[in-house]
Design a protein around this nucleic acid. Structure first.
Lengths: 242, 242
DNA sequence: TGGGATTTGTTCGTATGTATT
DNA sequence: GAATACATACGAACAAATCCC
């Protein structure tokens, strides 16, 4: 899925054939399917062994994922799946909405029959996955947005929307309850309809509401979900302790 | 300038204290000031020697810059300063305009006195630099947009606008003539005025026109400036040769 | 065309810093 | 609180690819 090509953002990056890219894709998928969750440790050794590569390669993959905001790399410490703060989460969603508006603006009215078929087929598989299980369901819902971004033929937009979409999936796995598994199917279909009809205003509004709904799931379920920052938690007691 | 903090996009990345980041900043500046131009070679050894670091560190810096689209990394080949194609150049400018609209939308009407002073001071130094020389002038013009992005307090927006702004500077050094040195001062001042007045529509329109003007310099001066792709150039003769 | 010099790709050992008993 | 186990940071060295004469 999401076939690659080599433009600005793909990051064939270092050399390493494509082992680095393969590991990145695998980890992205593991994150979006919640096989690993924020805070999980990703030691270079373990990764290397699991994927049959040396630490060097694993390290490069971690570096790349860190640059995408999916992994946190603290000096001399084991890498962990990122745990975005509440503010970062909101920021990510906000900017994502802004960028997806650009996608919609570019796509409305310029979707041909073949593209529409591809989109419908993708939503079909979302629907199937939603019946079946859940892990794949979230991934497919995310990739629907990637598919739209690819159709803009703007490598820059594709890269940024991709980064943000994955990061949003990560955020949902942090701030929303088990299965908010994207009842997005209907919303995706409506969006496709508006896009093929060339109704920019309607498509934009649908996309806005769709993403707001997704964000809302996180926002409502878990308010500021326990940052557990002792310094902050204990601040009110500081005066008393004096 | 452009003081750092550690949020999603900064890429403290691997460990390496901040030597990697320092090299990246230096190279970005060299690129924006046209000390190095598209196509220039950046061998790992030479970089390492120049900055007093080992190849490992230089390599990480190159990887990071590649991810920002400023450097091209081809397998087993010396890294070079990126040479974006004409299509990539247009794409970069287009998306940049979209993102800077988001910046303007967030900033209009929420600029306080201190921020306005900072912006004016920055344009002052642009003005001074424009009189003096040119290299610094382009850098300052670019950093004006970074300053605006920072004021949105959106790390994501700051990162993406930064990437695109530097990439646009690179593009101008590729596709425009020697000194298009941004007569941007007046336009920047007008933008500040509209922002502090809280006139979103006017600020947006000014930003659009400003960036269009910048892009136009490249577009007019050098049409498709000789990609010199032999395969393509010779295509019409293929039939004849049979 | 060939071969030597250059440059990258990768591994691995050592040093240093972090977690844990 | 110290010592041990463990993980990362960095660089030296080797192999393979590329460049250039």
């Amino acid at each position: 899925m999401v076939g690659r090509r080599n433009t600005v953002g793909n990051r064939a990056q270092f050399g390493s054939a494509d082992r680095v890219g393969a590991i990145c894709r695998a980890l992205r998928q593991a994150i979006v399917e919640r096989a690993v969750v924020p805070g999980d440790r990703l030691p270079e050794d373990a990764l290397g062994e699991r994927f049959g590569v040396s630490r060097t390669i694993a390290r490069q993959a971690l570096g790349q994922l860190a640059s995408e905001g999916l992994v946190e790399l603290r000096r001399n410490r084991i890498a962990v799946v990122a745990t975005p703060s509440w503010e970062e989460a909101r920021d990510t969603f906000d900017i994502r909405i802004g960028l997806e508006r650009l996608v919609v603006a570019r796509l409305a009215g310029s979707i041909d029959a073949v593209q529409e078929a591809a989109l419908q087929a993708h939503v079909d598989s979302e629907e199937a996955a939603q019946r079946g299980g859940e892990p794949g369901s979230i991934r497919l819902a995310t990739e629907f947005h990637l598919l739209l971004a690819q159709m803009t033929l703007s490598p820059v937009l594709e890269r940024y929307v991709g980064e943000l979409a994955y990061r949003c999936a990560l955020i949902l796995s942090l701030y929303s309850r088990p299965h908010s598994a994207e009842c997005a199917v209907a919303e995706h279909r409506a969006l496709i309809a508006a896009l093929t009809a060339g109704d920019v205003a309607r498509a934009t509004s649908l996309m806005d509401r769709h993403l707001d709904a997704v964000a809302e799931r996180a926002r409502i379920v878990a308010a500021p979900p326990q940052p557990r920052d002792l310094l902050r938690v204990l601040a009110p007691y500081a005066e008393v302790a004096l």
